[in-house]
């Protein structure tokens, strides 16, 4: 074989390699850019669908409580209120519990128990939301109705001020029940992010504090928590994003009433529950468009919350986050 032939083979091989490289890199790049296109597509499609409602109701869509398919008057205030209130109550319950679970897993738990308990918490996160819904409707809400709500009405309902929150008959289903089911749902998400964040705290910091005579709680509160503050808030925001957008679990237990009640025991609705309940039955373009407009609101709210969460968690080792 003379040199020219060798070069010929060489260059043909190289050409094939270069071609393969172009095709493969192009394919992966296209798929990656598709992720951006998806987000863009969602934004455009939702805005297009919501446009008639926004154009018709203008700002009143955000400020009115009325939701009347017959007269075609729609305002998003009740669903917005329900979404915010259920999520806030859920977070108030879930944050302390998640904090407790994550410090148990990182600071207290014996090594042999770490894996099973950690896995159990992650399995709770894997349970689909419809299961929480059906369990909430048939098991949790009746328990609340029989045992918890009568107590709340009798004891807290008579107090001045916060008493207004606990008025009315114990329906079982309602804003409080939905919020508590939400709390159970977001609990494992916040707990596993917090655990991962706490594990990034260098052991030498803990050991120094223990060396100075600090108790375990002091190490957690004065060393671990300040060190990982950003990540902890990020985890909380991630949980909040989930609570705001959660659909099926809430739809089952919130009662689906388009009104704003001062009592958390009364039925209410959320943005996602309204869409899930009414979308397939929505007759009329304005009705349909108003429901999509609710979707736009939900999208904007969750986008802001999730973006903030992801920015705060950016510094965290990506692997540590798993697929939360």
């Amino acid at each position: 074989m003379d040199q020219a032939t060798v070069f010929g083979i060489e260059s043909r091989h190289a050409a094939r390699q270069r071609f393969g490289e172009r095709v493969f890199k192009g394919a992966t790049l296209t798929a990656a850019v598709l992720v951006l296109v998806l987000l863009g597509g969602v934004t455009v499609a939702l805005l297009t669908g919501a446009w008639p409602a926004f154009a018709h109701f203008k700002l009143q869509f955000l400020t009115r409580q009325i939701w009347n398919p017959v007269t075609e008057k729609f305002g998003a205030l009740a669903p917005i209120y329900g979404t915010v209130v259920t999520s806030l109550i859920a977070m108030a319950v879930a944050i302390p519990l998640s904090f407790g679970i994550s410090i148990f897993l990182t600071e207290l738990c014996p090594a042999w128990l770490k894996r099973p308990v950690g896995t159990a918490v992650e399995l709770l996160a894997a349970v689909p939301s419809i299961i929480f819904g059906i369990w909430g409707l048939f098991v949790f809400a009746p328990v609340l109705q029989r045992h918890v709500q009568p107590w709340l009405i009798a004891h807290l309902g008579t107090l001045p001020g916060i008493g207004a929150l606990f008025q009315g008959p114990p329906y079982g289903i309602g804003v409080l029940s939905a919020a508590l089911v939400l709390a159970i749902m977001v609990l494992p998400f916040i707990a596993s992010v917090m655990r991962d964040v706490f594990e990034t705290v260098p052991d030498v910091l803990r050991e120094s504090a223990y060396g100075l005579g600090a108790t375990t709680w002091e190490v957690i509160w004065q060393v671990v928590l300040p060190y990982s503050r950003t990540g902890v808030v990020g985890g909380i925001m991630l949980g909040l994003g989930r609570a705001l957008g959660e659909t099926m679990a809430v739809t089952f237990v919130i009662g689906n009433a388009h009104r704003i009640s001062s009592s958390v025991l009364a039925p209410g609705t959320t943005i996602s529950a309204t869409i899930a309940n009414e979308f397939t039955e929505a007759t009329g373009d304005l009705y349909n468009s108003s429901l999509i407009a609710l979707g736009v609101l939900l999208f904007v709210i969750t986008f802001i919350v999730i973006s903030a969460a992801r920015l705060m968690l950016r510094r965290l080792d990506r692997k540590a986050l798993g697929s939360v």
């Binding site: 951006l36 969602v42 957008g245 996602s272 969750t302 999730i306």
Partner: peptide, 27 residues
């Protein structure tokens, strides 16, 4: 570009699935 795609992907990962339902309904 990669940083942006990562960020957007993380947002989509946590986005409410009902939004995806509305999107597919529309398109």
């Amino acid at each position: 570009l990669a940083a942006l795609i990562r960020f957007v992907n993380d947002v989509l990962l946590s986005a409410p699935s009902i939004i995806i339902g509305l999107f597919v309904y529309q398109i």
